[in-house]
Design a protein around this nucleic acid. Sequence first.
DNA 1: CTACGAGTTCGAGCGCGCTCTAAGTCAAGC
DNA 2: GCTTGACTTAGAGCGCGCTCGAACTCGTAG
Lengths: 142, 142
Amino acid sequence: MKIGELARRSGLTAHTIRYYERIGLLPYADRDRSSQRDYDVSILVWIEFLGKLKTTGMPIREMLRYAALRELGSGTGPQRRALLERHREQVRARVAELNACLLVLDTKIDGYADSDKRIDDYDAELFQHRQQSSRARQARPR
Amino acid sequence: MKIGELARRSGLTAHTIRYYERIGLLPYADRDRSSQRDYDVSILVWIEFLGKLKTTGMPIREMLRYAALRELGSGTGPQRRALLERHREQVRARVAELNACLLVLDTKIDGYADSDKRIDDYDAELFQHRQQSSRARQARPR
DNA sequence: CTACGAGTTCGAGCGCGCTCTAAGTCAAGC
DNA sequence: GCTTGACTTAGAGCGCGCTCGAACTCGTAG
C-alpha cells in the first residue's frame, strides 16, 4: 500500500502521514525500489489507535512516549498500561467537566426560553452599561 | 477593582484580560484618572461564563459572536439561545465521542492486564518487524 | 518520446490562544 | 524627593499540530 491509499484508508493526509513518520509517531516505512513508502495494512490498526488517543486529547509528546515504549517491545507492557490508565483518568475527568458545563448551558438556555426575556435582558443591560462611553478602537483575534 | 485583583479573582492573568478586551470578548473597561482599568464585580459572572464556553471547546471566534449579540442587547435573545443550543449539541456529541474512546481504552488496558502479555506483545512484534532495517535520522516535533 | 500523476525531501508558513517584553506612567510610603 | 510596584500600550514570540509549496524523481499509458 502506497501513501496515497493509506491516506484514503486512514483519513489522514499524505502530508500528515509523512509528518507522523518524521516525528516518530509512525514507524519508518519500508521503501520500494523508487523510494516510495510501502505500507502493510497492519499500520491501519496503529493509526486508528493513535486517532483515539488524539480524540481524547492526548498531546503528541505523550503519544510519542507510548510509541517509544511499544518499540522497546514486550517488557514495557506495565509502563504502557500505566500510561493509558493515567490518560483514562484524565479523559474521565474531562467528561465530568463537560457534563458539569452542560448543566450550566442548560440553565442558561432555559433562561432564554422564558419568553426570551428576564434574566438575560438584565445581563445585557448590565453589559451595555459598562460599554457606555467606550466603543471604537477594536482589535481582531489573530 | 483593578486588573490585578480581577486577575486573582477570575483566574486569568492580567495579560489575558487585556487580550480579551482587545479582541472584544470583554467590554472596554472604564479607566480611572490615571488610565487604569476599574472593574465592577459583575464582570466576574461574564468571565466565568466565558470560561464554561472555553472549557467546552467553543472557539474564541464564536464567543465573539455571542458577545456581540449580547452587546446588541435585548432583541438578540433568540439568536443567543440558538447559538448556545447549537453549541450544546456539539458538546453532547463530544461527550459521546469521549465515552466511546473510553471503551476502547478500557479494552486496551484490559489487554495489558492479562499477565501483561498476549495481544500487545503481538502488536509490538509486528511493529518491530516494520522497524527492522530502518532507524537513524529522526525529527523532533516542534 | 513525452506527458501525467503519484510519489519524494526539505523547510517555511499558518491558525489558535495566549504569553511576554519593552518602555513608559502614576500614586503611595519612607 | 525618591523608590517601589502595579499599572499602561504596542507589538513580538511561542507551543501545538499540522499544512503547504517548491523542486525534484519515477513508472506507466498513449
